[in-house]
Structure formats: structure tokens, C-alpha cells
């Protein structure tokens, strides 16, 4: 188990845990209700987090050679 893998827990905390606090219509962000903005934000952050894991995961570096 590589430590960087622990980052994968973060999207679960952000979406499943965060929804408890983000379940509101106001304030609007970019015109979106806050709950929708929150989920969209986490979709983007999830992609970024997975990119970091992918970069730091030795499994991908070995195969590239």
C-alpha cells in the first residue's frame, strides 16, 4: 500500500461527507445552486487528485519504459 493511494479517500470525503454541509441552494456560485456547484467542484478535484496519484504511482512509471 503506497501512501499516495490514501489521496483516493479525499473525493469520498468531499462528495459523501461534504454534502452534509453543502446541501443548500444559496449562495449561488457561477449561477449554480451551491449544492450543484459543490458537486461540480468535486468532480473536477477528483480528476486532479487521480492525476496526482497517476503521476506518483510507480506502477505507471515502470510500464512506460
Amino acid at each position: 500500500m503506497k501512501p499516495v493511494y490514501l489521496l483516493a479517500v479525499v473525493p469520498f470525503l468531499g462528495i459523501l461527507g461534504g454534502i452534509v454541509f453543502a446541501n443548500r441552494v444559496e449562495p449561488y456560485v457561477f449561477g449554480l445552486p451551491f449544492i450543484l456547484f459543490w458537486i461540480v467542484l468535486w468532480v473536477i478535484l477528483t480528476s486532479a487528485i487521480m492525476a496526482i496519484i497517476y503521476r506518483l504511482d510507480p506502477a505507471n512509471r515502470e510500464e512506460r519504459q
Binding site: 469520498f12 450543484l36 458537486i39 468532480v43 477528483t46 487528485i49
Partner: peptide, 20 residues
């Protein structure tokens, strides 16, 4: 209304799991 947003959320977490 709001409950529909689950559709946006679950695929995202499924892809995280899919990595392993």
C-alpha cells in the same frame, strides 16, 4: 430537483475505485 445531482456524483467515485 436536488436529488438528481446524485447522477453527477456516483460515476466520479466509481472511476476512483476503478483505478485499482
Amino acid at each position: 430537483g436536488g436529488p438528481a445531482f446524485y447522477i453527477l456524483s456516483y460515476g466520479c467515485l466509481a472511476y476512483v475505485i476503478s483505478y485499482w
